[in-house]
Design a protein around this nucleic acid. Structure first.
Length: 880
DNA sequence: CGATCCCGCCACATT
DNA sequence: AATGTGGCGGGATCG
């Protein structure tokens, strides 16, 4: 019947040929349709339809409902086309025949005509983008479906996506309320924030690490609850918590997916997200297992979502050229900044930034844990977190600012990194067991580790959990101080990894991101042009008004001088902030993983690590902390880009501000280098932050670039399993060496955009923390402080290394250490971890206590339970 | 042939 | 049980 209908009905609609024109035209001249007798002949199934048609008619007559629907379907078009409709019924008949035939031929309804995107446009066309606040338009799914001549199912697809952006909301069965785009910016903002948290987590993770996580986590999930009240529309990813009771059904994946997808864009510096990456990131659950099919399905859904988003003019399709070829991708063309900015009225404002840094730290771990914890969650988080890709890709789409684009690309890469890595790995390793590292995490065949990635993070948390983050900080400071550094330093640059020194050990599978926030304003200024020239940047910094620096300091970095005092709380804060600033993402990619190897740092083999390509273009505007600027102009990313490029003073300044603001929230361009470990050999995985000042980084030998760079090198024991991260950048204004040199040496491209100081972050197994140095070295050269003290051994090491080139730099920069794990040697067992995480994580108001309840739910599954709960449930079950 | 993604089955949710 | 929702993936179509 459907077929008939369609054929019948559809034909009527002029849509096919030139939908627009014809329809309109037809309206005027309906008559011509009738003429062609051909219809019968041509039409494929002439016979059937006739009878059917009759039936239809009858049926419709019989049931009002049916009739309505049918009518609408049929009528609508006809109506549009022609006014004849006076006698709809009878006419329809005729018309149908005639028109049908013709159309039929013409149309050949191309698939495109029926595309979801087109449908969505039609749908959107029916409602005002900015409806009067007062008027509430309700949308009846049936009605719309019939009007648009599609099955309801399709409408659901559209509405679900729109709902995710709060353009509509469901009021009742079959009824949706149209809100229009009034809240769009707010929604996007929220999503951005949430996205930062979620996806940025990893990135952030390092940044704020301790503090943040907690908050994030807590905030995210918890916050929503309270906030939700306030906010009219927003529910993000995890709305469930709050409304848990209400939540019904499994989390509508399409909706959530849509939000996540959008988040990826918002978080992505480049604003370009490739489908495959998005799919990977969005895939949760058992990734490994099904993978392919699942991936495929996910991609399909993404297309659905993308079509709708495209119709909303939020994204556009582009292609990213990668090593392997071009990949489909989408670029965000919607608003980048949101007026609402800092906080939302809704109350839930503080997403990430607002939180006090101190507190944040605590959060972070949780988050991670949480994510890691459950399989689901874990996966999700995991996936989410990883942003970058190791590989480089180009965006072909824009000619304009290739340069930036690239940078952006990188950023995006980072973002995607994880995903990509995973993919690669997967691809590379066909064997399931080995599978991609990423995948590992979640599923991890090895139960032991499976927890690892996250767990580690968790660990700290757990320990600390009650108390606070502060602990870590304090600890860190202590720990760091140790004179260790000296030892660490190696003579030539080869960094030896000290077994003792633990940096990060991540299971190979895990990825980490560091975000190099880049610097603040300064950075941005310098960056814009070409990151390439380190010197310039340095100069620029110098040029930069101190005030700016101060500001920065005040905000994020407490005081430059602070560095010296690690002990001070301020330092802690600084850390946090700093963390914000520079982040780098790292993804470890390990071909194969051996848990043991991972755990044992062993000696770092100095085997040369490869530097894989990394370009780090740093150009990205620094993320200034300035977030607060009052200026809230929304910038388009484009503008920003331009701005950066152009560097007009005026604009720049303004731009900076904007950027800074935004950046504050988000990590910006991650600049990082990824070093890939050589495969079988022990290799070091490490990332270097791109920010580093060229000078700092002089790498003499390609061999051990790492040393020279203030980065952390992680030795991968057997494998390159440990990823590591490091980031800091040091910039050394003092002796900025053209990055070129650096790059040359290493073969990497660094652009050092950041001379600016980025604070380096280190992650160490030891929890350490970081004393901070002033964030802006250049600014306060005077008080370089002797951060070294604080520095962890590693740092020290790095510093030492650096020193060679520019000791000052090292010193000057604030370093942040994160403690990821304790000695890697003892991997946590998932189980053990789990509980803690579990609790911490999952407690949702509803869930809190009773497993029993959950159990019940299990039967039904999640109806009531919020998604979170569901997850929990799942996890709980699975663990057993 | 890979990228898209329409179509609609069917399971689950809600009424 | 009927109906609403929407996950899901086969397979058609596009490029």
């Amino acid at each position: 019947e459907n077929i008939f209908d369609r054929s019948r009905m559809a034909p009527k609609t002029p849509i096919k040929n030139e939908p627009v024109d014809l329809s309109k035209q037809k309206g005027c001249t309906p008559e011509r349709n009738p003429i062609t007798p051909v219809k019968l002949v041509d039409r494929p199934q002439p016979d059937p339809w006739t009878p059917t048609a009759n039936l239809k008619m009858l049926i419709s007559a019989a049931s009002p409902d049916m009739r309505d629907r049918e009518k609408k379907k049929e009528l609508f078009r006809p109506i549009e086309n022609s006014k004849q409709s006076d006698t709809p019924d009878s006419l329809q008949y005729d018309m149908v025949d005639d028109s049908t035939v013709e159309e039929f031929e013409k149309q050949r309804p191309s698939r495109k005509q029926k595309s979801l995107g087109l449908l969505c446009q039609k749908f959107l066309a029916r409602y005002p983008s900015y409806p009067l606040s007062t008027e509430k338009t309700t949308i009846s799914l049936d009605e719309v479906a019939s009007i648009l001549g599609v099955e309801r199912r399709r409408i659901y697809d559209i509405v679900n996506v729109l709902e995710s952006l709060h353009l509509v909301s469901r009021v009742a069965k079959n009824q949706y309320c149209w809100h229009g785009r009034h809240n769009l910016s707010q929604t996007l903002k929220t999503l951005q924030e949430a996205g930062e948290l979620q996806y940025g987590e990893l990135m952030t993770f390092f940044q704020h690490k301790e503090q943040d996580l907690e908050y994030k986590f807590g905030e995210r999930k918890k916050e929503t609850i309270p906030d939700s009240q306030n906010r009219p529309l927003l529910d993000f990813s995890e709305p469930d918590c709050t409304s848990a009771s209400a939540n019904s059904r499994k989390d509508k994946s399409l909706r959530i997916m849509s939000q996540k997808f959008v988040m990826l864009f918002l978080v992505s510096k480049t604003k370009i997200v490739t489908l495959d990456i998005a799919a990977k990131i969005l895939i949760e659950e058992t990734q490994d297992t099904v993978d392919h099919s699942k991936f495929k399905t996910k991609v399909r859904r993404l297309y659905d979502i993308a079509n709708v988003l495209t119709s909303l003019a939020l994204i556009k399709k582009v292609h990213v050229t990668e090593e392997r070829g071009r990949k489909p991708a989408f670029k965000w063309i919607g608003p980048v900044e949101f007026p609402g900015k800092t906080d939302n009225p809704t109350g839930h404002s503080p997403t990430s930034n607002p939180l006090p840094r101190t507190q944040r730290g605590a959060c972070a771990p949780y988050q991670i844990c949480a994510t890691g914890k459950q399989r689901f969650t874990r996966h999700a988080s995991f996936n989410n977190a990883q942003p970058c890709e190791g590989t480089k890709r180009k965006v072909s789409s824009e000619p304009n600012s290739p340069h930036q684009e690239r940078q952006d690309e990188y950023c995006s890469k980072m973002i995607n990194l994880a995903a990509v890595c995973r993919q690669k790995i997967e691809e590379d390793t066909s064997s399931p067991s080995i599978t991609s590292p990423l995948s590992l995490l979640p599923v991890l065949g090895d139960s032991d580790f499976y927890v690892n990635p996250l767990p580690q993070a968790v660990f700290p948390v757990v320990q600390a959990d009650v108390p606070n983050l502060s602990l870590p900080n304090g600890i860190s400071s202590h720990a760091l101080h140790p004179s260790m550094p000296a030892a660490s330093k190696t003579e030539n640059g080869k960094p030896t990894l000290l077994p003792n020194q633990p940096f990060l050990c991540f299971p190979s599978s895990s990825l980490f991101m560091l975000c190099s926030g880049l610097q603040e304003n300064n950075m941005s200024e310098t960056l814009p042009t070409t990151a390439d020239v380190g010197n310039k940047s340095a100069e620029a910094q110098a040029a930069v008004p101190p005030a700016a620096c101060q500001k920065r300091n005040s905000r994020k970095c407490v005081s430059p001088s602070a560095p010296a005092d690690d002990e001070e709380p301020a330092a802690k804060k600084q850390i946090m902030e700093q963390s914000d600033v520079p982040l780098s993402l790292v993804v470890p990619k390990k071909p194969f993983e051996s848990p043991k190897a991972e755990s044992t740092p062993g000696n770092g083999r100095t085997s040369a690590a490869h530097l894989e390509a990394f370009h780090l273009d740093l150009t990205s505007p620094a993320a200034p902390e300035a977030a607060d600027k009052e200026s809230t102009k929304p910038l388009n990313y484009q503008e920003q880009e331009k701005w950066s490029q152009n560097k007009d003073p005026d604009e720049a300044s303004s731009g900076k501000e904007h950027i800074s603001k935004e950046n504050a929230n988000q990590p910006f361009l991650p600049q990082y280098l990824y070093v890939q470990p050589t495969a079988g050999l022990s290799s070091f995985n490490f990332l270097v932050s791109g920010n580093q000042a060229p000078g700092a980084i002089n790498l003499t030998a390609s061999q051990l670039p790492s040393l020279s760079i203030p980065c952390v090198v992680v030795p991968s024991a057997a494998l390159a399993s440990f990823p590591l991260v490091c980031s800091p950048t040091i910039t050394s204004p003092l002796s900025p060496v053209p990055d070129g040199s650096f790059s040359a040496a290493t073969s990497m491209n660094f652009s050092m955009s950041g001379l600016a100081s980025t604070t380096p972050v280190f992650i160490g197994t030891t929890a350490v923390v970081t004393p901070e140095v002033s964030p802006t070295p250049p600014v306060d050269p005077e008080q370089p402080a002797h951060p070294t003290l604080h520095l962890s051994p590693v740092l020290a090491r790095s510093c030492g290394a650096v020193k060679l080139d520019s000791p000052v730099q090292c010193m000057g920069h604030p370093v942040t250490l994160l403690k990821l794990q304790q000695p890697s040697s003892t991997p946590l067992t998932p189980k053990s971890i789990r509980p803690a995480c579990h609790e911490a994580f999952f407690k949702t108001p509803g869930s809190l206590g009773d497993p029993v309840a959950w159990k019940k739910n299990e039967g039904n599954q999640t109806r009531n339970a919020s998604s979170v709960q569901r997850r929990l449930e799942i996890s709980s079950t699975s663990p057993d």
